[in-house]
């Protein structure tokens, strides 16, 4: 066992690995079964928001409930779009650049924010988000202001010798694979960080910043690090979105979008890495299914939230954990107890 890896028994680990591999293979095969452009679009959006929600949770486990995350997505989106549009840089370069610029702004805003904690942090982070969105309005010349930014280049086609050229404008399938790979990549990094000494320090600060600093954890440093990592991936997600959607409006990165991301994370459950993944999937796909309800559709969204709050204190992922613990206890009772 290495710090942060909670599973005490090695025996169940291979089941986990097989389950993950199976899930990822299934997701890779998905376009074979789904040929509706509309469904693919929904899946792509789910993937983009999954990256954003997971990166938001990284900030959250360090005890910082940020209400600015969508703004950092927007920052990445605009930086990437502007560099690709005005300077003709390739999106393969501007997407990481979008992530880096979101990270830089996150760090700059993060240092002063370490002076406040808990609810106060949340409220101040709200202003940071609003200021970023307002800034987008001020640089109207580059961002298109409230009319929006159009003509963002799509991802350039990829030519691998011996294989047919992958053209991102031909259909949504190449985009689906791009975002699936991107999501797997981002989530692997976030997962690795959480299950390391760094992740433990984040969680320690969230539980008691006094104790954490008494054992030498640099509270401000680790909080800013969480923001840097979280904002970087938000920027990546936003930049990817820009080159997929090819149109940006700043209102899609405002207060309500940040709140939406927060809902995905909290409804999914903050206690588990899979919380935001489950939360995003449920809250993006279920409302799509109930679209025919028209003006009544928001009740479905709100209803899910209330259901979770009243009956699943640890979020949807917490429910899985509860079931798992019950199941394990059941198994343990059947096993003869060994004295160790």
């Amino acid at each position: 066992m290495v710090a942060g890896e909670h599973a005490p028994s090695g025996g169940r680990n291979w089941i986990k690995t097989v389950a993950y591999a199976g899930l990822i293979i299934l997701l890779f095969l998905l376009p074979l079964f789904v040929d509706s452009v509309y469904y693919l679009h929904t899946f792509i959006i789910t993937l983009i928001y999954t990256i954003a929600a997971c990166s938001l949770r990284t900030i959250l486990i360090s005890g910082q409930l940020s209400i600015a995350h969508a703004a950092f997505m927007g920052l990445g989106a605009y930086v990437s779009s502007i560099f690709a549009r005005e300077l003709n840089w390739t999106p393969w370069l501007t997407i990481p650049l979008g992530g880096v610029s979101a990270m830089v702004v996150g760090v700059l805003a993060g240092y002063p924010l370490t002076r406040v904690r808990a609810i106060y942090f949340s409220m101040v982070s709200l202003f940071v988000g609003l200021a970023i969105v307002a800034l987008m309005g001020v640089f109207q010349k580059y961002t298109g202001g409230d009319i929006g930014l159009i003509g963002i280049p799509p991802l350039p086609s990829i030519t691998i010798p011996g294989l047919p050229t992958i053209n991102f404008l031909s259909s949504k399938i190449p985009y689906y694979y791009f975002f699936l790979l991107l999501t797997v990549f981002c989530l692997m990094i976030l997962h690795s960080l959480e299950n390391s000494r760094i992740g433990m320090s984040w969680k320690a600060i969230a539980q008691s910043y006094l104790v954490a600093s008494s054992v030498g954890i640099n509270e401000a440093g680790f909080r800013v690090l969480a923001l840097a990592v979280g904002c970087f991936f938000a920027g990546i997600a936003g930049a990817g979105y820009a080159h997929y959607n090819m149109v940006l409006t700043r209102s899609s990165f405002g207060f309500l979008s940040s709140v939406n991301l927060l809902i995905y994370v909290l409804v999914g459950g903050t206690g588990s890495f899979f919380g935001p993944i489950i939360g995003t999937t449920v809250l993006v796909i279920v409302p799509e299914i109930f679209r025919w309800l028209k003006t009544f559709a928001p009740f479905v969204f709100g209803g899910i939230m209330l259901l979770v709050v009243f009956f699943m204190p640890q979020g949807i992922a917490g429910l899985f954990e509860q079931v798992k613990t019950k199941f394990l206890h059941f198994q343990e009772r059947k096993k003869p107890r060994d004295v160790s």
Binding site: L262, P298, L306, P313
Partner: peptide, 16 residues
Amino acid sequence: NRIVVVTLALIIILQA
């Protein structure tokens, strides 16, 4: 966390 979710849910429900 739960207060945040419940009050946000209320916004959505009241608006709807």
